[in-house]
């Protein structure tokens, strides 16, 4: 009864919101938004700081050289937000460790990995981690980037966890990696202040749109993010898998 009631209330609210947005003359209909008077227009055409009509593949000299404009927003125009999101992930991972390590002792996995798992995971590990790294590195060129890439790296490590109990002892390395990558991200930002005057400014040459070595600090940042996300999710996995069930 309670559930039905709450469903009704939520439905009423949902209907109300949709209805009120439908009647809202200032709220654009789906697919009819006028992009030209929004900041997104400038992000897409890379004309925030300079006059620019259209981005052409294979040319150079743009304010951000990333051919994937989502990436240019995530890792350049609003890189500060991304730093924030990375911090959110970081503090969540840390929180998981904090909560789990509080009262319970860590235990080893409660099942023995069989032969199939061990062999299969070793075979898959390389593929997955390579894909992950590729996606991270090519974040400025193709869809994807540090966050999905990092998650893939983490999932490859998950395989190692499942198949190899002794792997867990090397977790210290991940903490170091995590901390190091985070610091590097901030330091790149701070370097921006001293090179050009702005935090997280893209102070390297932006190169030719579409090249692997282009877009200035964007690929660097994305690799950092990839590694950081990977190590963070790995440590979350570690915490969850080895928590004592009481």
């Amino acid at each position: 009864m309670k559930k039905v009631l709450s469903l009704l209330v939520v439905l009423a609210l949902g209907f109300g919101i949709i209805n009120s947005l439908n009647q809202n003359s200032s709220f654009p209909k789906f697919g009819e938004a006028d992009v030209s008077d929004r900041v997104s227009d400038r992000y897409i055409n890379k004309n925030v700081t300079e006059e620019n009509e259209e981005v052409i593949f294979g040319e150079d000299g743009y304010e951000t050289g990333s051919s994937n404009f989502v990436t240019s927003i995530v890792a350049n125009y609003r890189s500060f937000d991304t730093l924030g999101e990375v911090t959110v992930l970081f503090i969540s991972a840390f929180g998981v460790a904090l909560l789990f390590s509080k009262d319970s002792k860590r235990v080893s996995l409660n099942f023995k990995p069989n032969f199939m798992l061990r062999v299969g995971s070793r075979a898959l590990f390389g593929l997955i981690i390579m894909t992950g790294i590729y996606i991270s590195v090519h974040g400025h060129l193709t869809p994807g980037g540090g966050f999905p890439g990092g998650t893939m790296i983490a999932s490859s490590i998950l395989l190692l966890y499942l198949s190899n109990d002794s792997f867990r002892t090397k977790i210290k390395g991940f903490k170091l990696l995590e901390g190091f990558m985070g610091s590097l991200y901030v330091l790149i930002g701070v370097a921006g202040i001293y090179v050009t005057g702005y935090f997280l400014e893209n102070f390297l040459d932006t190169g030719v749109v579409g090249d692997l070595f282009s877009a200035g600090i964007i690929p660097i940042v994305y690799v950092i993010i990839g590694l950081k996300v990977g190590s963070e999710i790995a440590s979350i996995i570690d915490n969850f898998l080895t928590e004592e069930v009481s």
Partner: peptide
């Protein structure tokens, strides 16, 4: 916490209802 969420939902419903 669901009581709080209920309050939030109710207030919002009241608001959009007023809109309608």
């Amino acid at each position: 916490p669901e009581v709080t969420v209920l309050w939030i939902v109710l207030i919002l419903t009241l608001l959009v209802w007023g809109d309608i």
